[in-house]
Design a protein around this nucleic acid. Structure first.
Lengths: 229, 229
DNA sequence: TCAAAAGTGTTAGTGTTACACCCATGA
DNA sequence: TCATGGGTGTAACACTAACACTTTTGA
């Protein structure tokens, strides 16, 4: 019988915790919620949930992401498993995922429902358990990923200006980038389409909108392009 | 009561699977074992074990590594969690770790005990479940890590020659490296100590032994050195 | 003396960094 | 007209990649 081999093994609670990132006011933000119950009532935490018996861990993460943002089809990637015995109040193994969302699509009614808010990554409060560590590892991973994959666009709306795109990367890497070098590099890849419209919300002159052309990117990758910022 | 919150949640078997890597005959090898029981009797698999109730997932990995190699204090890093519902015969969530060992320290009696063997990474047989995927992800991760961290030395003995070190990196990246450029780069970092002794096992002239000086590396890192191959 | 692997520098080219001024616009 | 952020090119420098011959030694 198959089950015999597993019979005497311990079983564990397994959770997913999501580092949901958005971009607003030229800064990365993370969605955090105030814990509504004891113990640690009022402590800030990431968005999480338990993995169900007939659900893959990826599906669990997608479910949690949808539940707390109201957005489906979110870009996400696993950060890793966190399994210290005492990381939670009872023994729970948690698998962290980070997600990149267009903050404009966020269902703000959920913020009230879960007592959640978008916190600037530079001004995060202390989080419960090992959630601060999860965020730290995520930022690390994001910095490595964003340098070689065009995932940053997931944080922006369909149309965005180059100044906005640049400030996004500046926020990810926490450092200033030279305007001319940045433009040269991103435009040289030839994966953006310049639109006719301008965004005049942050200057009188206005900045042209651009659009990421995924099809072109995919095609160029086939031909050996290496995305790099 | 604390437990109330968790009460109705599902529990899961959680395993660790280890991608144990060694270097021999100028090639990366992975330790795999023949499954000694049905179903899938005789199928090749990675080294694994279940996570116990009062054991962190890292400790579980260390336990498994020691059990199958006879070596303590092994360099290891988590690859990630694998949690498809049907990845195993029953629902098991597995956390993969890769480990880099000095293959000379391997307790060969364990190879018989577990019907294990070191398989060349270029000639791996098909593995059971999602183990081949785990290896693929590991190789990816290793390539990224080895380029910026001096972890390759964990695969070698205390003393090694530059030709050996080079062939190690050639095996990791599956591509030839220019001898002169490689030496220039690695020696420029000034983290190796040249010894007086030569290894004459692979040439009449003999190649000088070198040693990685961890203390010096740590010190230089403080001063802003970036390891890079 | 020869075969076989170890060891050694230079150059061209590519990519990266640093840097300053004009433009368009609304108030 | 002026204040503000958007937009543009070039030159020095650093790094990378390409490349061939000499040395040592045991058989």
């Amino acid at each position: 019988m198959i089950a015999a081999f597993y019979q005497n093994k311990d079983k564990h609670y397994v959770a997913v915790d999501c580092i949901i990132m958005g971009f607003r006011d030229n800064e990365l933000h993370i969605l955090i919620a105030k814990r509504p119950f004891e113990p640690l009532l009022g402590g800030w935490s990431l968005m999480g949930g338990f993995v169900n018996e007939f659900e893959s861990i990826n599906d669990a993460a997608k479910r949690v992401l949808d539940e707390f943002t109201g957005i489906e089809d979110i870009y996400m990637e696993q950060v890793g498993a966190f399994g210290d015995v005492n990381r939670d109040l009872v023994r729970v193994i948690s698998i962290a995922y980070y997600a990149l969302v267009d903050i404009e699509k966020f269902d703000t009614s959920l913020a009230e429902k879960y007592d959640a808010r978008w916190a600037k990554i530079t001004q995060l409060p202390e989080l419960i358990f090992d959630h601060s560590l999860m965020v730290k590892n995520t930022l690390n991973l994001l910095q490595r990923r964003a340098a070689v994959k065009p995932i940053g666009f997931n944080l922006l709306q369909e149309q965005f200006t180059l100044p906005t795109l640049q400030s996004l990367y500046e926020s990810i890497y926490q450092e200033a980038i030279d305007k001319r070098n940045f433009r040269k590099k991103i435009l040289a890849m030839d994966i953006l389409e310049k639109l006719d419209e301008k965004d005049k919300s942050s200057s009188r002159k206005g900045a042209f909108y651009y659009r990421f052309i995924k099809e072109k990117y995919d095609q160029l990758i086939q031909q050996g392009l290496h995305f790099s910022i």
